[in-house]
């Protein structure tokens, strides 16, 4: 038989588990609710609009002082990304060429002794 202390501990554990389970189910239901998701998305969308407007205003100020704006930095990022792309594409093509050459040289190696053998015969 459980002593009162043990009983109390066991009960509090059970209560806590039950609370966790119920809260978990509640959160899962809420986070799947389309109305809730729509509301969160609307909030996020509005804060993005606000951020966009702030950036626009900031861009106007920076332009007046001839300081590079977000827009000019983005142009630079695109150029660097494109350069990286072209370099890696070239690397891939060189690698493919090396593979083709290696395959051909192996095929030649295989054919050469056979030809030599044919001539001696």
């Amino acid at each position: 038989m459980m002593n009162p202390l043990e009983f109390q501990m066991e009960m509090s554990k059970k209560m806590f588990s039950e609370w966790e389970k119920n809260m978990g189910e509640y959160f899962d239901k809420t986070l799947r609710d389309q109305g809730f998701l729509k509301l969160v998305s609307q909030n996020l969308s509005q804060s993005l609009d606000f951020q966009g407007e702030m950036q626009k205003q900031m861009g106007t100020v920076l332009k007046a002082f001839s300081i590079p704006t977000e827009e000019s930095m983005q142009g630079l990022y695109k150029t660097v990304n494109n350069l990286e792309r072209r370099m890696l594409d070239l690397e891939e093509k060189i690698d493919q060429l090396e593979d083709t050459l290696a395959a051909k040289s192996e095929a030649v190696k295989e054919v050469t002794p056979k030809k030599a053998q044919g001539k001696t015969e």
Binding site: M73, Q74, Y77, N81, E84
Partner: peptide, 19 residues
């Protein structure tokens, strides 16, 4: 970082994993 915003899925799959 901010400079990587234009990296595409193709960059990651074909170019970086490829390299």
């Amino acid at each position: 970082g901010p400079q990587d915003r234009y990296l595409t899925l193709e960059d990651h799959v074909i170019r970086f994993i490829g390299a």
